[in-house]
Amino acid sequence: MGFKLLSKLLVYLTASIMAIASPLAFSVDSSGEYPTVSEIPVGEVRLYQIADGVWSHIATQSFDGAVYPSNGLIVRDGDELLLIDTAWGAKNTAALLAEIEKQIGLPVTRAVSTHFHDDRVGGVDVLRAAGVATYASPSTRRLAEVEGNEIPTHSLEGLSSSGDAVRFGPVELFYPGAAHSTDNLIVYVPSASVLYGGCAIYELSRTSAGNVADADLAEWPTSIERIQQHYPEAQFVIPGHGLPGGLDLLKHTTNVVKAHTNRSVVE
C-alpha cells in the first residue's frame, strides 16, 4: 500500500471513529477524501466538511520552486461564519470567499490569524475590503508590521502568557507558548472536538522541520505538551499544512522538532 493511500485511509478511519463516538456532533463529509496538494491548482481553494458547521479550507501556493498546501478553518456561528487564517495570499483568499459563498452561503463576518507569517495573514486586506472584521493577538499584529505583512485590524486580548485561553464565538483560542513562531495560536472547536494546530503542528508525513527561522526550538516541545494537557479530548487535529489526523500529530511534531534540534547540535 502506497504512503499517500495509507495517509488518506488514516484520515478516513479517524473521521469514521469520530462519527461513531459522537453521532450528534459529527456529520463528516462523505463526498470524498481530504484534498491534497496535487489536486488543488494554485489560485483555487477546496472546502472539506469535518463536522456539522465545521470545515477546513485548503489552498496551495508556490514557494521556492515548489507547491505547498495550506489549511485553515471555518466555523459556523449562528447565521454567520468565523474564518481562521487566510488562504495564503490575496488571490487565494478572494477564491476562498467565493467558494464559501458557493458552498455554504453564509457571510464571513470575523477572521482570526493564528500567527504573523504570510500563509496566515496574506489576504487580510481582501477580507477587510469584503467587510470582514480581522483579528490577531497584539504580538501577531506587531510582528506582521515588522515583517511588512498585512496586519489584522483588531487585537485579541488575554493571550499574552503561555497557557492563556479565551473564548471567541464558537471557538476557544489558546496560546501554548512559542513553537513554530513566538505568537502562534491554537484554535479548538469544543462542539466538535476539532483542534486546529496551525503551523505549530505537523502532518504525519512530514519528517523535516522546514521553516524554523522564527521558531523557538527549545520551547516548542513544552508548548505541545500544554496543548495535549489542555485538549486531551480532541479527536480531529488539523495541521497548518497537509493531512489531518488525531492527537498523534502532536507527538510526531515533537519528535521531528527534537530530531532537528539534535542534528543542529551535532553539526
Rank of each mutant, 00 (worst) to 15 (best):
V108E: 03
I58L: 09
Q61D: 05
H180R: 05
Y34D: 07
T36S: 13
E157R: 12
P69S: 15
N184V: 00
S31E: 09
Q61R: 15
G210F: 03
A90C: 04
N92Q: 05
V121L: 06
L83N: 00
A87Q: 00
Y135P: 00
L81A: 05
V132T: 07
P176Y: 00
H230D: 06
L127K: 02
Y68K: 06
N184T: 02
G148L: 05
A218Q: 14
L217F: 07
I74D: 02
A66Q: 15
I227M: 10
F174I: 05
D119G: 05
A130R: 14
A165S: 15
D52S: 12
L106N: 07
E150Q: 06
A209P: 11
N262W: 10
I40A: 07
S16K: 08
G246S: 12
T207G: 12
Y12K: 15
G65N: 12
V256R: 03
P138T: 08
S181K: 03
V124A: 08
D216T: 08
Y231D: 01
V11A: 11
T182D: 13
R226H: 08
Y202S: 07
L82F: 07
A215S: 10
T14H: 15
L106S: 09
Y135N: 04
V256K: 02
L96D: 00
A19N: 14
V187E: 05
F116H: 04
L96Y: 01
A15L: 13
L250C: 01
D79E: 12
V266P: 14
A130K: 14
R110N: 15
A19C: 14
L247C: 06
S181D: 00
A179T: 08
A19H: 06
S22L: 11
E147D: 10
T253Q: 00
S62G: 14
P244G: 04
V257R: 01
A218C: 06
A209Y: 05
T114Y: 03
T254P: 05
S137Q: 07
L96W: 00
G169K: 04
Y202K: 06
D216H: 07
I40E: 07
D125F: 05
T254D: 11
T109R: 14
T93D: 00
V11I: 14
Y188V: 03
R120V: 01
I40G: 07
K102V: 13
L24I: 15
A94V: 14
T254N: 13
A95E: 10
V126F: 12
I100E: 01
A218L: 14
Y188S: 02
R167L: 11
G242P: 04
A209V: 10
K91L: 14
S137D: 00
V67L: 15
A19F: 15
R167Q: 13
D183Q: 01
I40H: 05
A87R: 01
G148H: 10
N71Q: 05
V194G: 01
E44I: 08
I40D: 05
I20F: 08
A90W: 08
L10R: 11
V256N: 03
A209E: 07
K251M: 13
S27H: 11
E150C: 03
T114L: 00
A95L: 15
E172H: 05
H57I: 01
L9R: 15
A15R: 09
W220V: 00
P35K: 07
V67R: 15
A25T: 13
Q61S: 09
I224H: 01
Q49R: 14
S56A: 15
G242I: 04
E267W: 09
H115L: 04
P190D: 08
P176K: 01
A192I: 06
Y34V: 09
S139I: 13
D119F: 01
A130V: 10
V121G: 02
E150W: 02
F116L: 05
G240I: 06
L83P: 00
E80A: 10
L143T: 01
R110T: 10
L173I: 14
T253C: 00
A133F: 09
D52F: 10
L195S: 00
D164I: 06
W55H: 03
